[in-house]
Simulated assay, not measured.
Amino acid sequence: MADDDQLQRAEAIRRAVLGDAYVDGMAADSDPVAADFQAYITATAWGVWAREGPLSNRDRSLLVLAMTAALGRMEEFRLHARSAPRAGVTAREIDELLFQIAAYCGAPAGVAARRVVRELRTTPEEG
């Protein structure tokens, strides 16, 4: 796949998973470095999602959730937990993932992730 094709595919996947409103909001930042930074994030992080291979968007979403929880990056965990259904992840799968996070990353990571999931389920979606 050519670089431009992969970047376009990465952008499309990012929009499909996170939603146009989120991606457009990030692109609206007036900071002169913001556009370059967003292009970099799209090319690197979302470029991985655009790779050909055996992992589905669902698989990739579950992996991102596990990794962001393991790293204690709850803001990113929240973003991806909210977006996980668009990648094909069910609520039941997220519930089971919380047990995996607690077992392999420790109780504090599991508890923090569970708090985020509970909050997302009891708070209406923004936008």
Results as ranks from 00 to 15, higher is better:
V48M: 14
V48N: 13
V48Q: 15
V48D: 14
W49T: 02
W49E: 01
W49D: 00
A50D: 01
A50L: 04
A50I: 12
R51W: 03
E52R: 12
E52C: 04
E52S: 13
E52A: 13
E52M: 03
E52I: 02
G53F: 09
G53N: 06
P54H: 12
L55H: 11
S56M: 05
S56C: 07
S56D: 06
S56R: 03
N57E: 13
N57Y: 11
N57V: 06
R58H: 14
D59W: 06
D59M: 11
D59R: 07
R60Y: 01
R60E: 03
R60P: 02
S61A: 15
S61E: 06
S61L: 04
L62A: 01
L62E: 00
L63A: 15
L63K: 05
V64Q: 13
L65W: 03
L65R: 03
A66M: 11
T68N: 10
A69W: 04
A69G: 03
A69H: 05
A70K: 09
A70N: 12
G72F: 00
G72A: 12
G72K: 01
M74T: 05
M74S: 05
E75A: 15
E76T: 01
F77I: 09
F77G: 09
F77W: 04
R78M: 07
R78V: 05
R78L: 07
R78H: 12
R78P: 00
L79H: 12
H80Q: 14
H80I: 08
A81I: 00
A81W: 00
R82Y: 00
R82V: 00
S83C: 03
S83W: 05
A84N: 11
A84C: 13
A84H: 08
A84D: 10
P85V: 08
P85R: 04
P85A: 08
R86M: 08
A87R: 01
A87M: 04
A87H: 02
G88I: 06
G88T: 09
G88C: 08
V89K: 08
V89Q: 10
T90V: 07
T90S: 15
T90C: 09
T90W: 03
T90P: 15
T90F: 04
A91N: 13
A91T: 11
A91E: 14
R92L: 10
R92I: 07
R92D: 14
R92M: 06
E93R: 11
E93W: 10
E93Y: 10
I94P: 05
I94R: 09
I94A: 08
